[in-house]
Design a protein around this nucleic acid. Sequence first.
DNA 1: CTAGGATCCTGTCAGC
DNA 2: TGCTGACAGGATCCTA
Length: 283
Amino acid sequence: MPELPEVESIKIQLNKYIVGHTIKNVDIRYQKCFSGNPKDIIGGKVKKVRRFGKALVIDLDNGYSLVVHIKMTGQLIYRGPNLKNARTVSEKVKGGLEGKHTHVVFTLDKNGKLYYSDVRKFGWIKVVKTSEVENVDFIKRLGPEFLDSLTLDKFKEIVKSTSRAIKTLLMDQSKVAGVGNIYANDALFLAKIHPEKKSNKISDEKIEELYKAVGEVLKRSIKYGGSSEVAYVRPDGTDGAYQDHTLVYGKEGEKCPNNFGGIIKKTRTAGRGTYYCPNCQKL
DNA sequence: CTAGGATCCTGTCAGC
DNA sequence: TGCTGACAGGATCCTA
C-alpha cells in the first residue's frame, strides 16, 4: 500500500516531470474524489511538489495548490515531453490510462497529461490556497515526519505515552506521519518487537532499535522505488520493487528470514493484516 | 484514554 | 461456468 516511500517516490518523479508545466484544463470524471474549484488551478504553472506524510502537495505559481491523497489504489501517471521514451504502463493500471478507473485528467501545456486513477475510489484531490495547505484536516492532524522532524527523543516520548499496541501506534498518522502496514510489520520484525507489545512497556533500548529499524526500512524502500504490492505505480507508469524485498509482510507460512526456524505468522490487529515471526518477536 | 466495528469501494479469489 | 461471500486496506467516525 502506498506509504511514505511510495508517496516519496511519486513526489520525486513528479518533481522531474510536471514542474514547469502549466495546467490547461481539468477533466473530472468522478466528482466525489475532487473538491475545491478546478478553475482556480487553470493557468497555474507547477512550481514544486511536496509530501506531508502520505499526502502529496502540488504547488502552483498562482497561489493555489493541489492536495492529493492516493490512499490504497490511487495512481498519478504522467505522459508528455519530460518523459523520454515513455515506458509501457504497468498492468496494475487497470483498464489503461483512459479506462473507467481514471477519474481526473489534467491537460498540461506542451502536450503533457497527468492522469489520476483509483480503482477503489478512496483517494481524493483538493484545490486549496497554498497558504492554506497546512490547514487541510489531514495535514493539520499529522504527527512528526519519520526521516525528517521526528527525533529519537520525540519518538521515545510518543511511544512511552500510551499503552496501545506498538503496531497500531506506528500506523497512527497523528502520532507518526507516513508509516503504514507494510513498513510497520517489517520494522517491528527488524527490531524484534511483537506487534501487540504495549508501547509503554518497551525499553529505551528497544525503542531506539525500532526508531532505527523504521528509518532503515523506509529508506531501503525509497531506494527500490516503493512497493508495488497491489496498485502502486510511479508517475512514469512503472512498478517499484520493494515488494520483492519485504522481510515479513505478505509472507505467511514462509520461513523467517533470520533462519532460526521460525515460520511467519499472520494475525489481525486493529483490522489490519499483521505478519511476524513468533520466534524472534516475543510478547 | 482505549479497542473494536462500520464505512467508503471494487477487483480478486476461494468455495460450492 | 457462474454465483456468492469474504477479504484487502487508509483514514474517519461512532459506540462501548
